[in-house]
Structures are given as C-alpha cells and as structure tokens.
Design a protein around this nucleic acid. Structure first.
Length: 458
RNA sequence: UGCCGCAUAGCUCAGUCGGUAGAGCAGCUGACUGUUAAUCAGCGGGUCCUAGGUUCGAGUCCUAGUGCGGCAGCCA
C-alpha cells in the first residue's frame, strides 16, 4: 500500500476495461437475488463508486461483513454502467475487509440525521456527503488563499500564537499558564512561565504591521482565539483568520484587495469543487450557485457609514434598534443593507471613531476613521479592516483618549517613529467565508471540531 | 450573557382532556433477475433529559437544573 495508487477520483476518469483497486468506506449495500451493490467512497471526490458484486464473486460470509461504515478494498474491472446514475462502475472480483462496522451500533445512517446530531459524532461525520464536501471545500479554499497571495508576491508570515500583550483590544483572551489555575494559590505572574501574564492571540495584526513595514506585502493565516461568551451560529472560540497587511496602501487599495480576494477564492472553489457545490446547492442552500457566480461577476457595493445611515433612515423599515449617526450598526441594519437593499456583498467605510479601534487612521473631519467592513448576505460581517494610523502624534493622542496603556505599545509606536509608512490591512474569518461558500448555516459545521463556550469535545 | 423554544426507540418525530408507549426510517430474519434514499413480508427495540412538587394516577401540569436550537449582543 502506497499513496501512489488510484483513488476513486481517478477511477471515474479512467477508461472502462481497466483492472483496478478501490479503497474506501462503505456507504450502503443493496442486495438483490443474484447481485449486490456497494456504494463506496474514499473522500477523494464527492461521488461514490458503485461496486457490483455478482453472485459467487465473493463468498457470502465475507459479503455479510461489508456493511455501512466498513472499510474495504475491492479489486475488479472498471466497466461502463448500465444504471442511469453513474458512467462507470466496478465489477468486483475480490475484496479485503480492513475494518468492520457493526450495523447495529454504527451511528451514521444514510438518511435523515440532523446537523445537531452529526455534531455529536463529529469524529464520524466526515464520512457523510455533507461533511466530506465541507472539508474538501475547506482544503481547496485554504489552498486558493495561499495561491492568491503568493501570485501577488505577498509573504506568508507567522505571528505568535502566544502573546504577552493583553492590549490588542479585539476581545476577551484565554490565559496561557503553567500554573494550576485550580490550586487556589494566589496568582503570581512573575513566577509563571513567561514571567508575566500571557494569552492566546486574538489577532496577529499588530505583529503583521511590523513585518509589512519591512517586507511591504504580507499575510498570515492561522488559528485565533476569543474567550467571549458568545453563543451564536457565527462565532467560535477558536477559529482561523486570514490577515493581509500592505505597506504603501490606502483604504481604497485595501478594499480592492478584499474584493479581488473574495472573488478569486470563491471562483477557485467554484472551479475545483463543482461536485461538492452542486450538492450544497441541492441539499443545503438552493440559491447557492447563482449567488456565488453573481458575487464573482459583479462589483461590490461601496458605501460610507454616513451614506448607509441615510439609506437606513429612508428605508421605511421598522427596525428594533434606532438608526442615527453615531450608532453602531445592528445585525438587522446590516442585513437590510446587504440582503434587501443591495443583494450582494457591501463594503462600508469611514465609521465614527468612537465605535472603532484605536489604530485606525483618522479622517480630516475629526469624526470618522478609515475603517471598512465587508458585509455579506446571510452571514453578516466577513471582513473587518482599516487603513492604519501611521502618524505618531495622532496615534498617541488616540491611545491617550481611549485610556489605553501607552507603555504596552512601545514597539508598535516605534513603527511610527522609525520609517513610518501609510499602510492598511484586514482580517477575514475563514470559517465565515466557508459558510458563505457552502451555504452551511452554523459555523460549528465548517470546522472539524468546534470550540465554543462549554464545548471542547474531541 | 439576555429573551424564546425544544428534550419520547439507534435516527427523525407523533402522543388529544392527566388514565400507564406509537409511526417512519435504521437494525435483524426472509423474499426478490441490475439496484442506486431499492422494493415486499415478518421480528426485536423505551431510565419519556435530571431532581423535586401537585394528583388516586404525570410522557402530559408546576418549580429548579442540565443539554440543544433560534434570535440578540460580542466580532471575524
């Protein structure tokens, strides 16, 4: 056995008449008087291979071990299929059973399981249609992201996952310690592993900026952690984030990059995962394919926050939360804009400085900052970014205004002391992108093992 | 974390007015000339989430807890 062999993906493209092997897991077996049919899948592509077992080809006691969930290798001849649902099938001559699966206790059925139940058997769900497709799309999307940046000369960087800075301000953080938190002794950071409090990163942005102001165009793509007690279909405590950062880049350049990025990655998945997306379109989200091709082929709407507020005020909608200049936009407002008003992704820019982070570049009006959020129908905010404040005095003033600890930012401020440059970047939630591309409704179902409050199984 | 809803067979669910447990699918046994969510017949399968309470009697009503979901918030 060797990875250099045929996979089901290859068999579907092979010429009938070939003698082949087929490795995989059994989806179902159907028996007739003289013949048995086995649906086999190895995860190499969406389609199952139909294996035909003529009477006598395999002895009955072995055939009985080939049940749903079993792992097997068939040998036989690839032939054109007389059945309507597949071009080729395997005429079996022999089989080896690697692992049986007791049909009475194997929890995956071919019919009618809810997403909630499948989440409880997350170690087995990749064997089903839906999650096989999810994780193939996840892999292709991740690869397409690296390709996108690589082709444009961006350098892939690796900001630390453990950080001693608790001042990033992007959300509640997980502590990292070698001390027993349940021992009841008083906390003593100086005696801990790093000699001070340490945390899991909530964003690599500040570190990415330091590399952008040397390598010009960089991006990171890795796990990110937020200890927020959020219980929603759009939040995880551990998720993957893509964070490009560009020197010599304005907010407009940042928006252009974000739009090109989404279009190219979605386009790549449309190209390379056609079978998987077809399934999502049929069974998960009926409008998926038309929506995605529309997104790839039409420009994103770009609005300033101020324009968006005016549109919302003129909408005539009875919103639960009031709309006024200075208010943070609520989900209902974002949804109206992107789903009802525009019907495709919207980029909102130039938010009031009071509702955005300290590092965003201040506009000349003294009221707004060069922030941008990309909002997508169905899932809301998929990207958040900004042009960064590159002027030392402006940045220091904002840190003081917001009551943040100036000392903690000494190295971040050094970037503005020594060779500062206009620069911009954004953060993209990888799982949110996957929700958008697959039509899956819960973010817990686009990652193999979700981490959420009260949930760290597997 | 707040509001709302749900929890019954392996899965998906029904269970009327409070009177002692049901279906479909899955599984098992058999039938069937190539099936493809195969079909047909038969069989087995229950801590009705947990703990209290009301009642002659609770799957059903009440209280608390737990889990899950929806919406909201936090954001990516």
């Amino acid at each position: 056995m060797d990875y250099r062999r045929s996979y089901l993906r290859d068999l579907f493209a092979a010429a009938p008449g070939a003698e082949v092997e087929a490795y995989g897991w059994v989806k179902t077996r159907r028996d007739s008087k003289n013949v048995s049919f086995v649906q086999l899948n190895d995860g190499s592509c969406f389609n199952d291979l139909q294996v035909v077992v003529p009477e006598g080809a395999i002895d009955e006691s072995t055939l009985k071990r080939i049940t749903t969930g079993a792992c097997v290798r068939f040998t036989g001849t690839l032939v054109e299929s007389p059945g309507g649902k597949q071009a080729v099938e395997l005429q079996a001559k022999g089989v080896e059973v690697f692992g049986e699966a007791d049909p009475a206790t194997y929890p995956l059925q071919k019919k009618g399981a809810t997403m909630e139940f499948l989440r409880e058997i997350a170690h087995l769900r990749p064997r089903g249609n839906t999650f096989g497709a999810v994780f193939r799309v996840r892999a292709q999307a991740a690869f397409a992201i690296h390709e996108f940046f690589h082709r444009r000369g961006f350098h892939y960087i690796h900001p630390p996952i453990i950080t001693a800075s608790d001042a990033e301000g992007a959300g509640a953080m997980f502590h990292v310690t070698t001390h027993d938190p349940y021992a009841g002794k008083p906390a003593d950071p100086a005696a801990d592993f790093f000699g001070k409090p340490a945390f899991l990163t909530v964003s690599g942005q500040l570190e990415a900026e330091t590399l952008a102001l040397a390598l010009t165009n960089v991006y990171s793509f890795g796990p990110t952690f937020r200890a927020e007690n959020s219980n929603s279909a759009r939040h995880l405590a551990e998720f993957w984030m893509v964070e490009p950062e560009q020197a010599f880049c304005s907010l407009e350049g940042n928006m252009n990059l974000a739009e090109e990025f989404l279009k190219e990655v979605i386009g790549a998945v449309l190209d390379r995962c056609a079978g998987d997306l077809e399934f999502f379109n049929q069974r998960i989200e009926p409008e998926l394919l038309s929506t995605l091709s529309h997104v790839v082929n039409s420009p994103f709407e770009r609005l300033t926050y101020t324009e968006a507020i005016k549109l919302l005020e003129a909408s005539g909608e009875a919103f639960e939360f009031p709309v006024f200049w200075g208010a943070d936009l609520q989900s209902e407002h974002e949804r109206w804009l992107t789903e009802k008003k525009v019907g495709r992704p919207v980029i909102l820019t130039d938010y009031p400085k009071e509702i955005k982070a300290f590092y965003m570049r201040q506009n000349e009006d003294g009221k707004t900052v060069r922030a941008m959020d990309v909002l997508a129908p169905r899932i809301g905010e998929i990207i958040g970014g900004s042009q960064r404040e590159e002027r030392l005095d402006h940045l220091e003033a904002r840190i003081t205004e917001m009551g943040l600890p100036m000392e903690a930012y000494w190295w971040y401020l050094d970037l503005r002391r020594f060779g500062s440059a206009p620069h911009a970047g954004f953060g993209l939630g990888f799982e949110r992108l996957l929700m958008y591309v697959t039509g899956m409704k819960n973010i817990r179902d686009v990652i193999p093992y979700h981490r959420t409050p009260g949930s760290a199984e597997f």
